[in-house]
């Protein structure tokens, strides 16, 4: 141990100084590109600074922060409700029953193949057309509100995407896991929840994180049907003041939450998969 330590020190001492990096064309290009970004950053700061209007800020920034909370709800509620539906859909797809499989496939094909904005319009404006039927069914209180319609549309949409994630993840678990659990005398239900699902969740973790980020960004379309989420509050502020800064504030807020979410998810993934890393593996 000490011997090898000594050789390393000796090697480190003997190592020549790294050669001076020359100004190659590529290096110049790199600095030019960074210069463009720095200039763009400074320009944005200048636009925000010179256009800063204390009155606009005091009036609309708190609204945007409240909108940020609405955006959070627009992500958390559909993602968690959607996960439940998604598990059911994934189960249908993998059930082996032709009809269940076909129904789940059609559902997922529709919601993954059409724009989310069109789905929101279909549910929100479509409900208005069905008003009498919905009143008879005592459901009008729900479909009357844009808020509930958007939540419903987002939930149905993310359920389709999550179902695909779960389907792929569950079928990626080797069949031997099922067989082994059966050989141990576990029931199919216990096998699924205690053996298969935990392993599938590890595969599903990364695409689920991506889906959450897509949802944070996608939730901005709620603003089109009068929801005052972060995007809605920003559009309101712009339409009243014509102050372009508000879009830059919103951009900064969105970038912060998306980056924070991405980093948190990386952490979480590292934590949940720590038993899969060998001692020698490099931290990455």
């Amino acid at each position: 141990m000490s011997e090898s330590g000594q050789t390393t020190t000796a090697a480190a001492m003997a190592r020549p100084a790294p050669p001076k990096r020359r100004w190659s064309r590529m290096r110049l290009l790199g600095w030019v590109l960074m210069g463009v970004w720095i200039a763009a950053g400074l320009a944005s700061v200048w636009v925000m600074w010179s256009g800063f209007d204390a009155e606009t800020f005091a009036k609309y920034f708190p609204r945007m922060l409240r909108g940020l909370w609405v955006t959070t709800l627009l992500v958390i509620i559909p993602i968690s409700l959607g996960a439940l539906i998604a598990l059911g859909l994934a189960w249908m797809r993998l059930s082996g029953n032709k009809w269940l499989d076909g129904a789940a496939f059609a559902y997922m094909y529709f919601f993954r193949g059409t724009p989310m904005l069109a789905q929101v319009f279909l549910i929100y404006y479509g409900a208005g057309q069905l008003r009498h039927a919905l009143e008879a069914w005592n459901l009008w209180w729900f479909f009357r509100e844009a808020w509930y319609c958007v939540l419903l549309a987002f939930t149905l949409n993310t359920a389709a995407y999550q179902a695909e994630i779960y389907r792929v993840a569950i079928s990626a678990v080797p069949a031997g896991q099922w067989e082994g659990a059966l050989a141990l005398g576990l029931s199919r239900r216990v096998t699924f929840f205690k053996v298969i699902l935990p392993q599938a969740m590890i595969t599903a973790l990364r695409p689920l994180g991506n889906e959450i980020i897509l949802m944070i960004k996608g939730s901005a379309i709620a603003s089109v049907v009068t929801i005052f989420d972060l995007m809605g509050a920003t559009r309101l502020a712009f339409s009243r003041t014509f102050n372009f800064d508000v879009y830059l504030w919103a951009a900064i807020l969105y970038l912060i939450i998306v980056e924070a979410m991405r980093r948190m998810w990386d952490r979480l993934e590292g934590l949940l998969t720590r038993h899969l890393k060998r001692a020698g593996d490099e931290e990455k």
Partner: peptide, 21 residues
Amino acid sequence: PTIGRAARIYTTIFRGLPELL
């Protein structure tokens, strides 16, 4: 490294902003 950094700023911004924004 500077080119890599400039490229990463690009992807961070345009993958992080909502398309609508």
